[in-house]
Amino acid sequence: MKTSHTSFDGLDLLSSAVVILDAASRITYANAAAENLLESSFKALSQQKLSKLFLNGAHLDQVFQEAVQHRFADKRLDLALERPSREPLLVHVIVTALDNPETPVLIELRENVQQLKLDREERMLDQSQANKELIRNLAHEIKNPLGGIRGAAQLLELELPERHLKELREYTQVIIKEADRLQTLVDRLLAPHRRPHIVGDVNIHEVCERVRSLIVAEFPTGLTIKRDYDLSVPEFRGDKEQLIQAVLNIAHNAAQALSEQIKAGDAVITFQTRVARQVTLAKVRYRLALDLHIIDNGPGIPPDIRDRIFYPLVSGKDGGSGLGLTLAQTFVQQHLGVIECESRPGCTDFRILIPLP
Rank of each mutant, 00 (worst) to 15 (best):
Q173L: 13
Q183T: 14
R194C: 09
L160I: 01
G200D: 07
T172F: 00
I175F: 01
N203D: 06
A179R: 07
Y171E: 11
H193I: 13
E159V: 07
L190P: 07
G200P: 07
L185G: 00
E170P: 05
L182M: 13
R188Q: 14
Q173P: 04
N203P: 00
D180L: 07
N203Y: 01
E167Q: 09
N203F: 02
H193C: 15
E178V: 06
A191S: 15
P161V: 01
E170W: 01
D187F: 09
H197A: 14
G200T: 11
L168Y: 09
T172L: 03
H193A: 15
A191K: 13
D180K: 10
Q173I: 03
D187C: 04
L182Q: 07
L185E: 03
K177H: 12
I176M: 02
L189Q: 06
I176D: 02
Y171I: 12
T184S: 15
E170Y: 01
V199T: 08
L185S: 02
E167A: 10
H197V: 13
Q183K: 14
V186T: 03
G200M: 04
R181M: 11
H197I: 12
R195G: 11
L182F: 12
L165S: 06
V199Y: 01
R181A: 14
V186K: 01
H197F: 04
I175N: 01
K177E: 15
L190D: 05
E162A: 11
I175V: 10
L165H: 05
E170M: 06
R195Q: 07
L168S: 14
E162G: 08
V202T: 00
K166S: 12
H193R: 13
R195D: 07
P161H: 03
P196H: 08
K177C: 13
E162F: 07
P196K: 11
I175M: 00
K166L: 05
L189C: 11
K177I: 13
Q173Y: 11
I198Y: 11
N203A: 06
K166A: 14
Q183S: 15
G200K: 03
I198M: 08
T184E: 14
R188A: 12
V199A: 05
K177Q: 15
I198D: 01
K166C: 04
E159N: 09
E170A: 12
H193S: 15
H164S: 12
L190N: 04
T172H: 02
K166Q: 07
D201A: 10
L185T: 06
H164A: 09
V186Q: 03
K177F: 05
R195C: 07
N203V: 00
K166D: 09
A179L: 05
E167M: 08
T184W: 07
G200R: 02
E162M: 09
P192G: 10
R195N: 14
E159I: 08
E170L: 08
E167C: 05
D201K: 03
